[in-house]
Write a protein that binds this DNA or RNA. Sequence first.
DNA 1: ATTTTGGTTCGTGTAGTTGCGAACTAATTA
DNA 2: TAATTAGTTCGCAACTACACGAACCAAAAT
Lengths: 162, 162
Amino acid sequence: MTTEERIRLQKQLVETIGLEYEKEGMQPVASRILALLMIMDKECFTFDEIIEELRISKSAASVALKMLQLRNNVEYITFPGDRKRYFRLKRVDPYHIFEESRRKMQLNIENIGKILALKANPNAPNNQFLKEIKQMMEFFIESLDQLKEAYLNRHNSSNFSS
Amino acid sequence: MTTEERIRLQKQLVETIGLEYEKEGMQPVASRILALLMIMDKECFTFDEIIEELRISKSAASVALKMLQLRNNVEYITFPGDRKRYFRLKRVDPYHIFEESRRKMQLNIENIGKILALKANPNAPNNQFLKEIKQMMEFFIESLDQLKEAYLNRHNSSNFSS
DNA sequence: ATTTTGGTTCGTGTAGTTGCGAACTAATTA
DNA sequence: TAATTAGTTCGCAACTACACGAACCAAAAT
């Protein structure tokens, strides 16, 4: 495979994976930027390179980048004597990936708790069902924490920025 | 707490939990219906009861209910000699909750695979990072499957409709 | 002091989403 | 056969999200 061929395929992949991020609820421009930073061989893009590569406006890039930094997906570095920001993927501890789904599930557990607390008959079929869901989620979160420990023990040699 | 008081609090909870479902991407009307079916003591609502309780139009209710049934969140039953549909929460196996996150993660793993396959230098920092993420997700999915088994073994006395 | 560089913020147009009422359908009842 | 019931579908208006360009700002270069 020639280099040009590879780059063409990479740009194609930016579009497909960008679309998938969109389906998961991320904004179109932010999805494309994140995909770009993951897929291309170049690991640091300047603001101008991003807007040029993706053909988006400065404002769209600015807003999306702010959001991606807030979400901890992207960071930038600078070099002395160079005002440009070099944006790149933020490399967080891999287990951080699960933090969001853990948070969501925790919220769900609390909600089910609130629902059950207001029920007249705690043993009605729906409530039995809700209780099972809650138990399953509690079991899952517990296991998640154990998994995290197990993973960290196995990989304690890695050095990431938190 | 009096019954009226409880019902008032339940209706309030329908609104708060409905809003949370909205934030997760569900449509407003569908969110309210789902919350209603989870929260109120009445376990079966007719179409008319739903539109009356939530003050929504027939069309909005129709569209939202179709969607909720498609998503496997709601089902309806009928009674002989009664044309009305009685909508209620669909009580699926609790571990079905995890199937979606498993699917998502599997997709992610495949995407990272595609990304890595197109890279010029597989050992560049970003790619090391992507590999770690991928490994973590693989480790997690494997564990998930074990968890599911463990859970099913512990709770094999329950009887759900699949 | 003025211009250039590297962005950010604001106001606007456009596309997409949502929910309503009206019109419709299919089954039942009168 | 006509009217009622139980919903569905359609067309439209209101609202929302998004991305653009223009204006703006702060730092550096000229």
